[in-house]
Amino acid sequence: MFNTIKILTLSAVLATTSFAASAATVYSASTMAGGAGGIGLTNPAGNGSIYALDANAYPILAGPYFNGTTDPASQWVWAAPDSPALSQALQFVFSFTLAAQDLARATLTGVWAVDNEADVYLNGHLIDQLLGDVSSSFNQLHDLADLGWLQAGENVLSFDARNIGGDPTSANPAALLASVKIDVAPVPLPASLPLLGGALAAFGFVASRRKRSV
Rank of each mutant, 00 (worst) to 15 (best):
F138W: 11
G48I: 11
F66V: 15
F205A: 07
D119V: 07
D143P: 11
D183V: 09
L177Q: 11
G35I: 10
Q101G: 14
V93K: 13
L131H: 05
E154V: 15
R212I: 08
S179F: 00
P84M: 00
V184L: 01
S137W: 05
V13E: 08
P194K: 00
G37A: 03
N43P: 10
G35D: 10
L41H: 03
T17Y: 14
P194R: 02
L108Q: 00
V93A: 12
D133L: 09
T31M: 05
L196C: 09
G148A: 05
N56L: 14
N56H: 13
L193T: 12
T9W: 06
G148E: 01
G132E: 15
L10F: 08
M32C: 13
A57S: 08
A100M: 00
A29S: 05
G204H: 03
W78R: 04
G48T: 13
Q140A: 02
V13R: 02
N172E: 08
Y121L: 14
E117H: 15
N67M: 09
A161S: 12
Q88H: 14
R209I: 11
A15P: 08
V120L: 07
F138E: 01
V187L: 04
A45S: 07
L90M: 09
D54S: 04
T97R: 09
V206E: 03
N67W: 11
P190S: 08
D183G: 07
T16P: 05
Q129N: 12
L53C: 04
G124W: 14
D71E: 09
A202I: 12
G166N: 00
L130Y: 02
A118R: 06
D82N: 13
S158Y: 03
T31C: 09
I164A: 07
N47K: 13
S11F: 00
A201L: 11
A55K: 03
V214I: 03
A185G: 06
A175G: 04
G46F: 05
L147F: 03
F203D: 14
N172C: 05
A191Y: 06
S137K: 05
I50S: 05
L10Y: 07
T17A: 12
P188Y: 08
F96A: 05
F203V: 13
A12L: 04
Q140M: 10
V134F: 11
T69Y: 02
Q140C: 03
L86H: 15
A89T: 13
I127N: 06
A106E: 06
P81Y: 07
S49F: 06
I5F: 12
A118F: 00
L200D: 10
T70W: 05
Y121Q: 11
L177T: 11
V111T: 03
W78I: 01
A23D: 14
S28F: 06
F96N: 01
P168K: 15
T169L: 15
A23F: 09
I60W: 06
V187A: 00
D71N: 02
L177D: 15
I50G: 01
I164F: 01
A174V: 04
Q91M: 05
S30R: 13
A57L: 10
